[in-house]
């Protein structure tokens, strides 16, 4: 049984998962600033202050004793340095205190693996969309390769920045989705797909301009969603056509969006691929995904010694050998 700690950005989470993939608990808390964005130091303070009690809750909710935990996994990267370091410190302490092995997990890989656990998918093309990431990931040659990604800002970041500009609270995604439903008119925005990558910064600038011009907020939100999701659908489609895989997985915080889900369902249908949207509790940043990936990794023979367990803030999805999968 593994206790997984996730703290790469503004959320801190702890989850307990059994070796056969049962999620016994999954507790998290998200720092939601009253105004402005996330400051790395504030977020790390949040993790340091709430981390221990979140861990305690996760163990209690799982209905187990701390001694029942025989593996500690933590999000080793990529993420904000200060947040990663606090999380790693808690993980090392627990590992030493309980006398159990420590595993360092790649945050993006964990999103894919927990999605596979939930959906039963074997080898999907994964659309991973969140505040900090926009990636189209697929397994090839013993690595999870990023077939598509953003060339500038992540989709969630784009939505939050726009939201802040037009007076919405963080995170703005759900509000934008609600407003978009009332949108009637489509205003053309820069649609920027480059190969299998995309770019959102031009679209964001243009959307802000629409607001300054007095275009109704629902119309802006509608136009932004349709353009941003259309671009994402295109690169997902390119990845499916390119890799010839038959499963499409949608995960990450932005996976909550129903319009995005509908569009990607259409993409999957067009290519006779199965589709799954990871359920909200497992789609966002949380500890269960770290715990589950930690189990896979540990079973395949991978673990860390404390002195070498430094964090990897720039750890790319495709930098880790995926020793627990065959390709």
């Amino acid at each position: 049984m593994c206790l997984g700690l996730e703290g790469t950005a503004h959320s801190f989470g702890a989850g307990v998962v059994t070796d056969d993939g049962k999620v016994l608990s999954n507790v998290w808390d998200m720092l939601s600033p009253r105004e402005g964005g996330i400051h790395p130091r504030e977020a790390s303070r949040h993790h340091a202050e709430l981390g221990p009690s979140i861990v305690k809750q996760a163990i209690e909710k799982a209905g187990v004793q701390p001694q029942d935990v025989d593996l500690i996994a933590f999000s080793r990267g990529p993420g904000l340095g200060p947040c990663l370091r606090v999380t790693a410190t808690i993980a090392r302490t627990l590992s030493l205190h309980l006398g159990v092995p420590l595993v360092g997990v790649n945050h993006c890989v964990a999103h894919v693996e927990i999605g596979c656990l939930e959906s039963g998918f074997q080898d999907p093309v994964t659309v991973y969309v969140s505040g900090g990431n926009t990636q189209i990931i697929a397994f090839a040659g013993q690595r999870f390769r990023t077939f598509g990604e953003t060339l500038d800002i992540a989709i969630g970041n784009m939505l939050d920045t726009l939201g802040r500009e037009i007076g919405m609270r963080f995170p703005a995604g759900p509000t934008i989705e609600r407003e978009a439903r009332r949108g009637e008119r489509y205003y053309q925005l820069p649609y920027s797909v480059k190969g299998m990558d995309l770019s959102y910064s031009g679209m964001l600038t243009a959307a802000k301009r629409l607001y300054q011009e007095g275009i109704p907020i629902p119309d802006i939100c509608h136009s932004v969603q349709e353009t941003a999701f259309g671009m994402l659908a295109e690169i997902a489609e390119r990845a499916i056509a390119h890799t010839k895989k038959r499963e499409l997985l949608l995960t990450g915080g932005v996976a909550r969006n129903n319009r995005l889900t509908e569009i990607l369902k259409g993409v999957a249908q067009r290519h006779s691929a199965r589709f799954h949207r990871v359920s909200p509790p497992l789609a966002g940043d949380q500890g269960a995904m770290i715990a589950w990936t930690g189990i896979l990794q540990f079973k395949a023979g991978d673990h860390l010694q404390v002195p070498e367990s430094h964090v990897l803030p720039k750890w790319r999805t495709d930098e880790q050998d995926i020793i627990w999968r065959r390709g």
Partner: peptide, 13 residues
Amino acid sequence: AKPYLLPEIDSLL
């Protein structure tokens, strides 16, 4: 045509 896209965007592209 891609039926899952907004028709305005689809025909433009």
